[in-house]
Amino acid sequence: MKIEFKEEQKFTQWWLWLILLPIGLLPTIGIYKQIILGEPFGDKPMPDIGLIIFTIFIFSLLGLFKVMKLKTNIDNDKIEMSFFPFVKKTTKWTDMKKAEVINYGFVGGWGIRLRTKYGTVYNIKGNKGLAIELLNGKKYLIGTQKETEMYEIVKKACG
């Protein structure tokens, strides 16, 4: 019996981008006003180089949110998870003590959450995921938007 599951998630929540994009507007206005027009930006303007560095930092942060993605691939032998550009894990079924699809609630936000009761949580949105406990006692959780499909795959794999 062949088991195969694939999922790719990105930060596509409209409300998140409604918050993030205006953050990029502030340094853009500052660059325009202070460097192009030559007028100080704010009551206590930072030096031009500071404004440029701050702008680069903000746009790098926005770019990071754009490229981050959580990919999950499951087959007969293993679970592969990648939270690009930070983490890549491969776990064989034989190295697992337990794997179950759960509703983990809210773990303090999205992204990578350390030291939760589920171990490290990798999620992009929602509150459903595959909780994995390894034979060595370590735990981690992979968020999913395909809860039912993932549940069926895990049920087949754990038999």
Rank of each mutant, 00 (worst) to 15 (best):
78 K>V: 05
79 I>M: 04
75 D>S: 12
50 G>E: 08
29 I>M: 03
67 V>L: 11
30 G>V: 00
77 D>N: 15
79 I>E: 06
37 L>N: 05
67 V>R: 00
62 L>S: 08
73 N>T: 14
44 K>Y: 12
83 F>M: 09
36 I>K: 09
39 E>V: 14
31 I>W: 10
43 D>K: 10
66 K>E: 14
34 Q>M: 00
48 D>N: 13
43 D>M: 04
39 E>A: 12
72 T>F: 03
42 G>A: 01
72 T>N: 05
54 F>E: 11
52 I>T: 03
51 L>A: 10
78 K>R: 14
30 G>F: 02
61 L>T: 06
35 I>F: 09
32 Y>K: 00
61 L>R: 01
53 I>S: 11
65 F>P: 01
77 D>F: 07
80 E>G: 07
32 Y>L: 13
39 E>T: 12
54 F>N: 05
57 F>L: 15
54 F>K: 03
51 L>I: 05
49 I>N: 09
73 N>G: 12
34 Q>N: 02
39 E>Y: 13
70 L>V: 06
55 T>M: 07
35 I>D: 07
71 K>S: 15
52 I>D: 04
46 M>E: 14
55 T>A: 15
45 P>W: 01
50 G>D: 00
33 K>C: 04
52 I>E: 14
70 L>M: 09
40 P>S: 10
35 I>C: 03
51 L>E: 09
58 I>E: 09
51 L>P: 10
74 I>R: 05
71 K>H: 10
49 I>L: 12
68 M>S: 12
44 K>M: 12
65 F>Y: 05
72 T>A: 03
42 G>V: 06
77 D>P: 08
76 N>M: 13
35 I>W: 03
46 M>V: 08
50 G>V: 05
36 I>N: 00
83 F>A: 07
32 Y>E: 04
57 F>R: 04
75 D>M: 10
56 I>E: 13
79 I>R: 05
78 K>S: 13
77 D>Q: 02
44 K>T: 15
59 F>R: 05
81 M>N: 10
67 V>I: 15
77 D>C: 01
63 G>Y: 08
44 K>L: 12
63 G>I: 05
48 D>F: 01
59 F>M: 10
70 L>T: 00
38 G>P: 08
43 D>P: 06
38 G>F: 00
64 L>R: 01
34 Q>H: 05
78 K>M: 08
66 K>D: 10
72 T>G: 00
39 E>N: 15
34 Q>F: 01
55 T>G: 09
64 L>E: 11
75 D>P: 10
65 F>E: 07
44 K>S: 15
29 I>H: 08
61 L>Y: 09
57 F>S: 11
41 F>V: 04
53 I>V: 04
56 I>A: 14
74 I>P: 09
63 G>Q: 11
29 I>N: 08
29 I>S: 04
33 K>T: 03
51 L>K: 03
41 F>I: 02
57 F>Y: 05
56 I>V: 14
